[in-house]
Design a protein around this nucleic acid. Structure first.
Lengths: 214, 214
DNA sequence: CCTTCATGGATAGCGGCACTATCTAAACAT
DNA sequence: ATGTTTAGATAGTGCCGCTATCCATGAAGG
Protein backbone atom coordinates (compact mmCIF):
# COMPACT_ATOMS: atom_id res chain seq x y z
CA UNK A 1 0.00 0.00 0.00
CA UNK A 2 1.45 3.36 -0.87
CA UNK A 3 0.67 6.75 0.64
CA UNK A 4 -2.14 7.58 -1.74
CA UNK A 5 -3.79 4.22 -1.14
CA UNK A 6 -3.47 4.58 2.61
CA UNK A 7 -5.15 7.94 2.18
CA UNK A 8 -7.96 6.46 0.11
CA UNK A 9 -8.61 3.58 2.50
CA UNK A 10 -8.69 5.81 5.54
CA UNK A 11 -10.29 8.93 4.14
CA UNK A 12 -7.42 11.01 5.51
CA UNK A 13 -5.63 13.38 3.12
CA UNK A 14 -2.04 12.59 2.18
CA UNK A 15 -0.97 15.94 3.58
CA UNK A 16 -2.43 15.02 6.94
CA UNK A 17 -0.87 11.56 6.88
CA UNK A 18 2.48 13.18 6.21
CA UNK A 19 1.84 15.45 9.15
CA UNK A 20 1.10 12.47 11.39
CA UNK A 21 4.27 10.77 10.18
CA UNK A 22 6.25 13.88 11.00
CA UNK A 23 4.65 14.09 14.41
CA UNK A 24 5.47 10.47 15.13
CA UNK A 25 1.86 9.32 15.44
CA UNK A 26 2.37 6.89 12.61
CA UNK A 27 5.50 4.76 12.13
CA UNK A 28 7.26 5.32 8.79
CA UNK A 29 6.47 2.89 6.01
CA UNK A 30 8.90 0.29 4.75
CA UNK A 31 11.26 2.34 2.66
CA UNK A 32 11.58 0.81 -0.82
CA UNK A 33 13.82 3.50 -2.20
CA UNK A 34 14.35 7.20 -1.87
CA UNK A 35 10.94 8.07 -3.16
CA UNK A 36 8.70 5.15 -2.28
CA UNK A 37 7.48 3.66 0.96
CA UNK A 38 5.21 0.73 1.52
CA UNK A 39 2.46 0.72 4.17
CA UNK A 40 0.47 -2.24 5.45
CA UNK A 41 -2.69 -3.10 7.35
CA UNK A 42 -1.03 -2.19 10.63
CA UNK A 43 -0.49 1.34 9.41
CA UNK A 44 -4.10 1.57 8.37
CA UNK A 45 -5.27 0.34 11.74
CA UNK A 46 -2.99 2.72 13.59
CA UNK A 47 -4.13 5.58 11.42
CA UNK A 48 -7.74 4.84 12.22
CA UNK A 49 -6.89 4.66 15.90
CA UNK A 50 -5.15 8.01 15.72
CA UNK A 51 -8.08 9.59 13.91
CA UNK A 52 -10.52 8.18 16.42
CA UNK A 53 -8.48 9.51 19.33
CA UNK A 54 -8.24 12.95 17.75
CA UNK A 55 -11.72 13.30 16.31
CA UNK A 56 -13.91 11.28 18.64
CA UNK A 57 -11.75 11.46 21.74
CA UNK A 58 -10.70 15.07 21.09
CA UNK A 59 -7.19 14.43 22.28
CA UNK A 60 -4.47 16.87 21.24
CA UNK A 61 -1.81 15.48 18.94
CA UNK A 62 0.86 15.68 21.61
CA UNK A 63 -1.24 13.53 23.94
CA UNK A 64 -1.91 10.99 21.24
CA UNK A 65 1.82 10.69 20.69
CA UNK A 66 2.41 10.12 24.37
CA UNK A 67 -0.36 7.55 24.71
CA UNK A 68 0.88 5.62 21.69
CA UNK A 69 4.40 5.68 23.07
CA UNK A 70 3.18 3.76 26.10
CA UNK A 71 1.03 1.43 24.06
CA UNK A 72 4.08 0.48 22.00
CA UNK A 73 6.52 0.21 24.88
CA UNK A 74 7.18 -3.51 25.19
CA UNK A 75 9.59 -2.97 28.05
CA UNK A 76 6.74 -2.20 30.43
CA UNK A 77 4.75 -4.83 32.24
CA UNK A 78 1.09 -5.27 31.74
CA UNK A 79 -0.70 -3.04 34.19
CA UNK A 80 2.02 -0.41 34.19
CA UNK A 81 1.82 -0.11 30.44
CA UNK A 82 -1.91 0.08 30.72
CA UNK A 83 -1.81 2.63 33.48
CA UNK A 84 0.88 4.63 31.73
CA UNK A 85 -1.23 4.87 28.62
CA UNK A 86 -4.25 5.96 30.60
CA UNK A 87 -2.37 8.43 32.72
CA UNK A 88 -1.06 10.21 29.71
CA UNK A 89 -4.55 11.50 29.17
CA UNK A 90 -4.92 14.08 31.92
CA UNK A 91 -6.17 17.19 30.10
CA UNK A 92 -6.62 18.90 33.43
CA UNK A 93 -4.70 21.89 34.73
CA UNK A 94 -3.10 21.49 38.14
CA UNK A 95 -5.50 22.60 40.85
CA UNK A 96 -4.35 25.56 42.89
CA UNK A 97 -3.82 24.07 46.34
CA UNK A 98 -4.08 27.45 48.01
CA UNK A 99 -7.61 27.91 46.81
CA UNK A 100 -10.13 27.30 49.56
CA UNK A 101 -12.55 25.55 47.21
CA UNK A 102 -9.85 23.20 46.04
CA UNK A 103 -8.95 22.32 49.62
CA UNK A 104 -12.58 21.66 50.47
CA UNK A 105 -12.96 19.56 47.33
CA UNK A 106 -9.92 17.55 48.37
CA UNK A 107 -11.50 16.73 51.67
CA UNK A 108 -14.81 15.74 50.12
CA UNK A 109 -13.18 13.46 47.61
CA UNK A 110 -11.04 11.84 50.29
CA UNK A 111 -14.17 11.30 52.36
CA UNK A 112 -15.84 9.78 49.34
CA UNK A 113 -13.05 7.25 48.83
CA UNK A 114 -13.21 6.29 52.50
CA UNK A 115 -16.91 5.87 52.35
CA UNK A 116 -16.72 3.68 49.27
CA UNK A 117 -13.81 1.66 50.52
CA UNK A 118 -11.75 2.52 47.47
CA UNK A 119 -8.52 1.91 49.31
CA UNK A 120 -6.49 1.40 46.18
CA UNK A 121 -7.58 4.65 44.67
CA UNK A 122 -6.80 6.27 47.99
CA UNK A 123 -3.17 5.32 47.62
CA UNK A 124 -2.99 7.14 44.32
CA UNK A 125 -4.47 10.44 45.40
CA UNK A 126 -1.27 12.37 45.03
CA UNK A 127 -0.45 11.16 41.55
CA UNK A 128 -3.53 10.02 39.72
CA UNK A 129 -4.75 12.47 37.09
CA UNK A 130 -8.26 11.10 37.55
CA UNK A 131 -8.16 12.14 41.18
CA UNK A 132 -6.93 15.58 40.23
CA UNK A 133 -9.66 15.96 37.63
CA UNK A 134 -12.24 15.03 40.18
CA UNK A 135 -10.97 17.62 42.62
CA UNK A 136 -10.97 20.29 39.94
CA UNK A 137 -14.55 19.50 38.93
CA UNK A 138 -15.85 19.41 42.49
CA UNK A 139 -14.04 22.66 43.27
CA UNK A 140 -15.58 24.35 40.22
CA UNK A 141 -19.04 23.29 41.32
CA UNK A 142 -18.45 24.40 44.89
CA UNK A 143 -17.28 27.77 43.62
CA UNK A 144 -20.68 28.10 41.96
CA UNK A 145 -22.40 27.28 45.19
CA UNK A 146 -23.26 23.67 44.48
CA UNK A 147 -22.41 21.52 47.40
CA UNK A 148 -21.23 18.25 45.95
CA UNK A 149 -20.17 16.40 49.06
CA UNK A 150 -19.20 12.79 49.49
CA UNK A 151 -22.80 11.94 50.17
CA UNK A 152 -24.02 13.22 46.87
CA UNK A 153 -21.06 11.91 44.92
CA UNK A 154 -21.33 8.40 46.32
CA UNK A 155 -24.26 7.12 44.24
CA UNK A 156 -22.63 8.43 41.08
CA UNK A 157 -19.35 6.82 42.04
CA UNK A 158 -21.18 3.58 42.63
CA UNK A 159 -22.65 3.66 39.14
CA UNK A 160 -19.29 4.54 37.61
CA UNK A 161 -17.72 1.67 39.42
CA UNK A 162 -20.17 -0.70 37.86
CA UNK A 163 -19.33 0.81 34.51
CA UNK A 164 -15.65 0.18 35.19
CA UNK A 165 -16.44 -3.43 36.03
CA UNK A 166 -18.09 -3.80 32.63
CA UNK A 167 -15.05 -2.19 31.02
CA UNK A 168 -12.64 -4.60 32.62
CA UNK A 169 -14.78 -7.62 31.90
CA UNK A 170 -14.61 -6.70 28.26
CA UNK A 171 -10.91 -6.13 28.56
CA UNK A 172 -10.31 -9.60 29.90
CA UNK A 173 -12.24 -11.05 27.01
CA UNK A 174 -9.63 -9.73 24.57
CA UNK A 175 -7.51 -12.55 23.21
CA UNK A 176 -4.03 -11.02 22.99
CA UNK A 177 -1.95 -8.82 25.22
CA UNK A 178 -1.33 -6.19 22.55
CA UNK A 179 -5.04 -6.07 21.89
CA UNK A 180 -5.74 -5.67 25.57
CA UNK A 181 -3.55 -2.60 25.81
CA UNK A 182 -5.12 -1.07 22.75
CA UNK A 183 -8.55 -1.97 24.04
CA UNK A 184 -7.77 -0.39 27.37
CA UNK A 185 -6.79 2.84 25.69
CA UNK A 186 -9.90 2.76 23.59
CA UNK A 187 -11.97 1.97 26.62
CA UNK A 188 -10.63 5.07 28.28
CA UNK A 189 -10.76 7.35 25.27
CA UNK A 190 -13.52 6.26 22.99
CA UNK A 191 -15.94 4.86 25.52
CA UNK A 192 -16.09 8.21 27.13
CA UNK A 193 -17.78 10.00 24.26
CA UNK A 194 -19.99 6.97 24.04
CA UNK A 195 -20.91 7.15 27.71
CA UNK A 196 -21.44 10.87 27.43
CA UNK A 197 -23.80 10.37 24.53
CA UNK A 198 -25.69 7.63 26.36
CA UNK A 199 -25.90 9.85 29.40
CA UNK A 200 -27.40 12.73 27.46
CA UNK A 201 -29.77 10.46 25.64
CA UNK A 202 -30.86 9.00 28.97
CA UNK A 203 -31.39 12.52 30.28
CA UNK A 204 -33.59 13.32 27.33
CA UNK A 205 -35.52 10.12 27.76
CA UNK A 206 -36.03 10.67 31.46
CA UNK A 207 -36.98 14.31 30.99
CA UNK A 208 -39.57 13.33 28.42
CA UNK A 209 -40.92 10.64 30.73
CA UNK A 210 -41.34 13.08 33.58
CA UNK A 211 -42.53 16.17 31.76
CA UNK A 212 -43.45 15.10 28.24
CA UNK A 213 -42.48 17.22 25.27
CA UNK A 214 -44.48 20.25 26.45
CA UNK B 1 -18.70 46.39 42.25
CA UNK B 2 -16.52 47.77 39.51
CA UNK B 3 -14.58 45.96 36.85
CA UNK B 4 -11.41 45.67 38.86
CA UNK B 5 -13.31 44.29 41.83
CA UNK B 6 -15.19 41.82 39.67
CA UNK B 7 -11.80 40.73 38.42
CA UNK B 8 -10.42 40.36 41.92
CA UNK B 9 -13.41 38.39 43.20
CA UNK B 10 -13.38 36.01 40.29
CA UNK B 11 -9.70 35.68 39.58
CA UNK B 12 -10.30 36.56 35.94
CA UNK B 13 -8.23 39.38 34.42
CA UNK B 14 -9.98 42.60 33.48
CA UNK B 15 -8.85 42.11 29.89
CA UNK B 16 -10.58 38.76 29.76
CA UNK B 17 -13.73 40.13 31.38
CA UNK B 18 -13.82 42.84 28.73
CA UNK B 19 -13.45 40.14 26.13
CA UNK B 20 -16.40 38.23 27.58
CA UNK B 21 -18.48 41.42 27.63
CA UNK B 22 -17.61 42.01 24.01
CA UNK B 23 -18.51 38.43 23.14
CA UNK B 24 -21.83 38.74 24.91
CA UNK B 25 -21.11 36.08 27.52
CA UNK B 26 -21.60 38.63 30.26
CA UNK B 27 -24.32 41.26 30.30
CA UNK B 28 -22.99 44.84 30.51
CA UNK B 29 -22.90 46.42 33.94
CA UNK B 30 -25.23 49.17 35.05
CA UNK B 31 -23.79 52.19 33.33
CA UNK B 32 -23.24 55.00 35.87
CA UNK B 33 -21.72 57.37 33.37
CA UNK B 34 -19.52 57.26 30.31
CA UNK B 35 -16.58 55.75 32.14
CA UNK B 36 -18.04 53.75 35.00
CA UNK B 37 -20.19 50.71 35.23
CA UNK B 38 -21.47 48.89 38.24
CA UNK B 39 -21.55 45.09 38.49
CA UNK B 40 -23.36 42.98 41.04
CA UNK B 41 -23.48 39.48 42.47
CA UNK B 42 -25.35 38.25 39.43
CA UNK B 43 -22.47 39.26 37.21
CA UNK B 44 -20.05 37.48 39.47
CA UNK B 45 -22.14 34.34 39.40
CA UNK B 46 -22.52 34.46 35.65
CA UNK B 47 -18.81 35.03 35.23
CA UNK B 48 -18.04 31.98 37.32
CA UNK B 49 -20.53 29.97 35.30
CA UNK B 50 -18.87 31.09 32.07
CA UNK B 51 -15.43 30.23 33.37
CA UNK B 52 -16.61 26.82 34.52
CA UNK B 53 -18.16 26.09 31.15
CA UNK B 54 -15.00 27.14 29.32
CA UNK B 55 -12.36 25.73 31.60
CA UNK B 56 -13.97 22.68 33.15
CA UNK B 57 -16.49 21.96 30.42
CA UNK B 58 -14.11 22.92 27.60
CA UNK B 59 -16.87 24.56 25.63
CA UNK B 60 -15.89 27.02 22.91
CA UNK B 61 -16.92 30.61 23.51
CA UNK B 62 -19.48 30.54 20.71
CA UNK B 63 -21.22 27.56 22.29
CA UNK B 64 -21.25 29.21 25.69
CA UNK B 65 -22.93 32.22 24.14
CA UNK B 66 -25.56 30.04 22.56
CA UNK B 67 -26.24 28.05 25.72
CA UNK B 68 -26.57 31.21 27.79
CA UNK B 69 -28.93 32.64 25.20
CA UNK B 70 -31.31 29.79 25.86
CA UNK B 71 -30.83 29.93 29.60
CA UNK B 72 -31.86 33.58 29.56
CA UNK B 73 -34.73 33.25 27.14
CA UNK B 74 -37.82 33.78 29.26
CA UNK B 75 -40.10 33.32 26.30
CA UNK B 76 -39.47 29.60 26.26
CA UNK B 77 -41.31 27.13 28.41
CA UNK B 78 -39.63 24.99 30.94
CA UNK B 79 -38.50 21.85 29.26
CA UNK B 80 -38.00 23.49 25.88
CA UNK B 81 -35.70 26.02 27.43
CA UNK B 82 -33.94 23.25 29.21
CA UNK B 83 -33.65 21.14 26.11
CA UNK B 84 -32.60 24.09 24.00
CA UNK B 85 -29.77 24.85 26.37
CA UNK B 86 -28.64 21.24 26.35
CA UNK B 87 -28.93 20.83 22.62
CA UNK B 88 -26.69 23.75 22.00
CA UNK B 89 -23.83 21.65 23.31
CA UNK B 90 -23.28 19.08 20.58
CA UNK B 91 -19.66 19.51 19.48
CA UNK B 92 -20.05 16.58 17.14
CA UNK B 93 -19.55 16.70 13.39
CA UNK B 94 -22.42 15.39 11.30
CA UNK B 95 -21.97 11.69 10.62
CA UNK B 96 -21.56 10.79 6.97
CA UNK B 97 -24.68 8.80 6.20
CA UNK B 98 -23.10 7.15 3.19
CA UNK B 99 -20.48 5.51 5.34
CA UNK B 100 -21.23 1.84 5.90
CA UNK B 101 -20.04 1.97 9.50
CA UNK B 102 -22.31 4.89 10.22
CA UNK B 103 -25.29 3.06 8.76
CA UNK B 104 -24.51 -0.04 10.81
CA UNK B 105 -24.10 2.11 13.92
CA UNK B 106 -27.48 3.68 13.23
CA UNK B 107 -29.13 0.30 13.20
CA UNK B 108 -27.43 -0.82 16.38
CA UNK B 109 -28.42 2.29 18.24
CA UNK B 110 -31.99 2.01 17.02
CA UNK B 111 -32.05 -1.60 18.19
CA UNK B 112 -30.69 -0.47 21.54
CA UNK B 113 -33.49 2.05 22.03
CA UNK B 114 -36.08 -0.58 21.18
CA UNK B 115 -34.59 -3.05 23.58
CA UNK B 116 -34.53 -0.51 26.39
CA UNK B 117 -37.96 0.81 25.67
CA UNK B 118 -36.69 4.33 25.32
CA UNK B 119 -39.63 5.33 23.18
CA UNK B 120 -39.23 9.01 23.82
CA UNK B 121 -35.63 9.05 22.76
CA UNK B 122 -36.65 7.09 19.72
CA UNK B 123 -38.81 9.97 18.59
CA UNK B 124 -35.84 12.29 18.68
CA UNK B 125 -33.43 10.23 16.64
CA UNK B 126 -33.38 12.53 13.70
CA UNK B 127 -32.72 15.67 15.66
CA UNK B 128 -31.08 14.92 18.97
CA UNK B 129 -27.36 15.73 19.07
CA UNK B 130 -26.91 13.08 21.75
CA UNK B 131 -28.20 10.49 19.33
CA UNK B 132 -25.86 11.73 16.65
CA UNK B 133 -22.91 11.64 19.01
CA UNK B 134 -23.72 8.09 19.95
CA UNK B 135 -23.84 7.02 16.33
CA UNK B 136 -20.52 8.70 15.62
CA UNK B 137 -18.86 7.00 18.59
CA UNK B 138 -20.23 3.58 17.76
CA UNK B 139 -19.23 3.99 14.12
CA UNK B 140 -15.68 4.94 15.10
CA UNK B 141 -15.39 1.84 17.26
CA UNK B 142 -16.82 -0.39 14.55
CA UNK B 143 -14.35 1.05 12.09
CA UNK B 144 -11.62 -0.17 14.42
CA UNK B 145 -13.14 -3.61 14.50
CA UNK B 146 -14.89 -3.39 17.84
CA UNK B 147 -18.37 -4.67 17.63
CA UNK B 148 -20.41 -2.57 19.95
CA UNK B 149 -23.89 -3.88 19.32
CA UNK B 150 -27.10 -3.19 21.16
CA UNK B 151 -26.40 -6.12 23.41
CA UNK B 152 -23.15 -4.71 24.65
CA UNK B 153 -24.41 -1.15 24.84
CA UNK B 154 -27.48 -2.02 26.85
CA UNK B 155 -25.89 -2.49 30.28
CA UNK B 156 -24.01 0.78 29.88
CA UNK B 157 -27.18 2.53 28.81
CA UNK B 158 -28.92 1.12 31.85
CA UNK B 159 -26.29 2.56 34.16
CA UNK B 160 -26.40 5.91 32.39
CA UNK B 161 -30.13 5.97 32.75
CA UNK B 162 -29.79 5.59 36.48
CA UNK B 163 -27.32 8.41 36.44
CA UNK B 164 -29.85 10.54 34.59
CA UNK B 165 -32.45 9.73 37.21
CA UNK B 166 -30.10 11.01 39.88
CA UNK B 167 -29.51 14.14 37.81
CA UNK B 168 -33.18 14.89 37.46
CA UNK B 169 -33.91 14.18 41.11
CA UNK B 170 -31.37 16.81 42.01
CA UNK B 171 -32.85 19.12 39.44
CA UNK B 172 -36.30 18.90 40.98
CA UNK B 173 -34.85 19.71 44.36
CA UNK B 174 -33.82 23.16 43.09
CA UNK B 175 -36.07 25.84 44.53
CA UNK B 176 -36.50 28.28 41.65
CA UNK B 177 -37.12 27.93 37.96
CA UNK B 178 -34.13 30.03 36.95
CA UNK B 179 -31.94 27.93 39.17
CA UNK B 180 -33.34 24.79 37.64
CA UNK B 181 -32.35 25.85 34.16
CA UNK B 182 -28.90 26.84 35.29
CA UNK B 183 -28.60 23.62 37.22
CA UNK B 184 -29.64 21.63 34.19
CA UNK B 185 -26.92 23.25 32.14
CA UNK B 186 -24.40 22.60 34.83
CA UNK B 187 -25.60 19.06 35.16
CA UNK B 188 -24.97 18.55 31.50
CA UNK B 189 -21.70 20.41 31.30
CA UNK B 190 -19.94 20.17 34.60
CA UNK B 191 -21.17 16.83 35.76
CA UNK B 192 -19.62 15.27 32.74
CA UNK B 193 -16.02 15.98 33.69
CA UNK B 194 -17.00 14.85 37.14
CA UNK B 195 -18.44 11.60 35.86
CA UNK B 196 -15.45 11.09 33.61
CA UNK B 197 -13.11 11.53 36.55
CA UNK B 198 -15.14 9.16 38.69
CA UNK B 199 -15.15 6.67 35.87
CA UNK B 200 -11.39 6.74 35.50
CA UNK B 201 -10.88 6.57 39.21
CA UNK B 202 -13.19 3.59 39.35
CA UNK B 203 -11.22 1.97 36.56
CA UNK B 204 -8.03 2.46 38.51
CA UNK B 205 -9.59 1.07 41.63
CA UNK B 206 -10.99 -1.94 39.86
CA UNK B 207 -7.76 -2.60 37.98
CA UNK B 208 -5.83 -2.52 41.24
CA UNK B 209 -8.33 -4.85 42.85
CA UNK B 210 -7.98 -7.36 40.08
CA UNK B 211 -4.30 -7.18 39.34
CA UNK B 212 -2.68 -5.22 42.15
CA UNK B 213 -0.22 -2.52 41.28
CA UNK B 214 2.03 -4.60 39.12
C1' DC C 1 -7.76 72.58 41.40
C1' DC C 2 -4.63 69.41 39.90
C1' DT C 3 -2.78 64.97 39.60
C1' DT C 4 -3.39 60.15 39.37
C1' DC C 5 -5.92 56.51 38.26
C1' DA C 6 -9.71 53.42 36.43
C1' DT C 7 -13.11 53.00 33.00
C1' DG C 8 -15.48 51.74 28.50
C1' DG C 9 -14.61 51.28 23.88
C1' DA C 10 -11.93 50.09 19.97
C1' DT C 11 -8.43 47.68 17.58
C1' DA C 12 -4.39 45.04 16.94
C1' DG C 13 -1.45 41.39 18.21
C1' DC C 14 -0.06 36.79 20.06
C1' DG C 15 0.68 31.91 20.78
C1' DG C 16 -0.90 27.43 20.15
C1' DC C 17 -2.74 24.04 17.32
C1' DA C 18 -4.20 21.10 13.55
C1' DC C 19 -3.61 21.03 9.54
C1' DT C 20 -2.58 22.57 4.34
C1' DA C 21 0.13 24.15 0.52
C1' DT C 22 4.21 24.49 -2.04
C1' DC C 23 8.50 23.27 -3.38
C1' DT C 24 12.35 19.91 -4.65
C1' DA C 25 14.78 15.90 -6.46
C1' DA C 26 14.25 11.27 -7.28
C1' DA C 27 11.95 7.31 -9.32
C1' DC C 28 8.43 4.82 -11.57
C1' DA C 29 4.51 4.00 -15.19
C1' DT C 30 3.25 4.00 -19.97
C1' DA D 1 9.96 11.11 -23.08
C1' DT D 2 6.49 12.66 -20.23
C1' DG D 3 3.49 12.89 -16.67
C1' DT D 4 2.69 11.21 -12.00
C1' DT D 5 3.91 9.97 -7.46
C1' DT D 6 6.90 9.85 -3.74
C1' DA D 7 9.60 11.52 0.62
C1' DG D 8 11.22 15.29 2.76
C1' DA D 9 11.47 20.06 4.02
C1' DT D 10 9.52 24.45 5.02
C1' DA D 11 6.21 27.94 5.12
C1' DG D 12 1.63 29.38 5.48
C1' DT D 13 -3.40 29.34 7.09
C1' DG D 14 -7.41 29.80 9.92
C1' DC D 15 -9.34 29.58 14.16
C1' DC D 16 -9.53 30.52 18.94
C1' DG D 17 -8.98 32.38 23.47
C1' DC D 18 -7.16 35.60 25.13
C1' DT D 19 -3.74 39.89 25.89
C1' DA D 20 -1.90 44.41 25.09
C1' DT D 21 -2.21 49.07 23.74
C1' DC D 22 -4.27 53.24 22.96
C1' DC D 23 -7.73 56.73 23.78
C1' DA D 24 -10.90 60.31 25.78
C1' DT D 25 -13.56 60.64 29.75
C1' DG D 26 -14.38 61.21 34.29
C1' DA D 27 -13.89 59.95 39.25
C1' DA D 28 -11.08 60.00 43.67
C1' DG D 29 -7.70 61.96 46.66
C1' DG D 30 -4.83 65.47 48.57
Amino acid sequence: MRLAELSRHSGVSTATIKYYLREGLLPPGRQINATTAEYDEEHLRRLRLVRAMIQVGRLPVSTVREVLGHVDDDSLGRSIRLGAALWALPQVPEPDEDDEYVRAAHQEVAALLDRLGWHNAKLLTTISPAYRSLVVAVAALRRLGYDWGAERLAPYAELMHRTAVLDLDHLEAQPSEAERVETAVLAAILNEPLLRALHRLAQEEETARRYGFE
